[in-house]
């Protein structure tokens, strides 16, 4: 009985670890998708409505109800409580748990510090620049999700099978 429980436990651990790994890839893709959407939204709102950055982030969160990126939702919360957008984004980038890499988090904080300091034309260019940067990251993350993510699941299942055979 103990042996059976041990087998099940080890198998569950193997599968669990692989699923967690897979989820990390998935989450990063989702968060990057949201960040890319946010940057596109910034670009269009600056171009057509000349809305201030604090209103843009609030509008974005209102429209995109999927809560996929903790950094963005945390920033929107802080902005709605009266914090200025650049400071709120910097704070959330520093303290929020996220699946984004350090490089991506730095880029997002850098974006918040750059946007809103110049005229619309320059800020649209800034959105485009960071948009392309995050698009590349998103493509890479999707590739990782499909290749490494699946591989993690397969390895997990194989490890579970190996553990089962070993115990038997």
């Amino acid at each position: 009985m103990i042996k059976l429980c041990g087998i099940i436990l080890v198998m569950l651990c193997c599968v669990g670890v692989s699923i967690k790994r897979m989820n990390t890839y998935k989450c990063r893709s989702k968060e990057l998708t949201q960040v890319k959407k946010l940057l596109d939204f910034f670009e269009s709102q600056i171009r057509y409505c000349a809305e201030p950055t604090s209103e843009i982030i609030l509008d974005f969160v209102r429209i995109n109800r999927e809560d996929d990126c903790p950094v963005i939702s945390c920033c929107a919360d802080m902005v709605s409580n009266g914090h200025p957008f650049p400071a709120a984004m910097r704070e959330c980038c520093d303290h929020c748990e996220s699946s984004l890499t350090g490089e991506e988090i730095n880029a997002l904080a850098e974006f918040s510090g750059t946007i809103g300091r110049s005229d619309a034309e320059s800020d649209i260019k800034c959105c485009k620049y960071y948009g392309e940067l995050f698009l590349n990251q998103l493509n890479e993350a999707r590739e990782q999700e499909s290749s490494k993510g699946r591989m993690a699941i397969r390895l997990g299942l194989l490890a579970a099978a190996a553990a089962f055979i070993l115990f038997i």
Binding site: A50, P52, T53, S54, P84, I115, G116, S118, A120
Partner: peptide, 12 residues
């Protein structure tokens, strides 16, 4: 910057 709500483009 604060008066511009950190969005100079909005007031250009």
């Amino acid at each position: 910057s604060m008066l511009c709500d950190y969005s100079v483009f909005s007031f250009q």
